[in-house]
Amino acid sequence: MTTRTPATRVSFAGVLAAEWTKLVGLRSTLWVALGTALAAASLAYGLSLFAGRGDGPTGVSLVVAGSVLAQTGALALGALVGAGEHSSGAATATFTAVPRRLPVLAAQAVVTGAGAGVTAAAALAASALATTDARTRAGLVLELADPETARMLAGFVLHLVGVALLGLGLGALLRRPGAVIVAGVILLVVVDQLLATNPGQVTDTLRAALPGAGARLLLDDAALAALDAASRGPRLGAWGGGLVLAGWAVGALAAGAGRLCRGDVTR
């Protein structure tokens, strides 16, 4: 040993810095973020080609239209952080450095949320760019000062952050990225579509309780009103849907934390 390192200790700030170092030190993070932004923009562009011919979308609804695809990217981001740790074997190094374990999951939640937020902002910017032509052609303006527009843009970001945190929680629980993607898509899309085939009070109530309700955050007021009018379940509105998604994310993180705390870190 050449030098004696000065005595330092584990701190949450340190664990946070470590998780950030790990996140940005992987190429897959960058590819997922880029892919998410591109997918969102492509879908928004595709849908914008039909703008102005039907029953008139708003400018902002075109910009957020890519969220259906973008949510898969957010899910993958959370899965890579939460499950990649275990599936790659890196958990051994991570949890010998931080044997109390929970600070790692908390730090992962912060960096995953931040990563998803930045990715969502990039996806919005790309989508805005991709739909410029269509919006000009149809005379649709993007009025940022308008409360509905602001809510939908913020909703797009919050929705992706929520889905990424759901992915992280499922990742800590299931420990396999593939399993997280499958479980996430089933929860977010498949079950909802199955229930939609048989509308009724029970199925509509169940649909409102699924994490996909978070997508209400980015629906415009007219679409929300139509959705609520057609539903025989609870009327959630935009923020109610966001709360349902938040509940799922918190629940998944709590379940992941439970397994992390009680169980073994295995190879």
Partner: peptide, 17 residues
């Protein structure tokens, strides 16, 4: 993690402390 460099891997561990 196979996708991380040795430097990044060690740096992350170092940062916790």
């Amino acid at each position: 993690h196979p996708g991380r460099t040795a430097f990044r891997h060690l740096l992350a561990q170092a940062r916790t402390h």
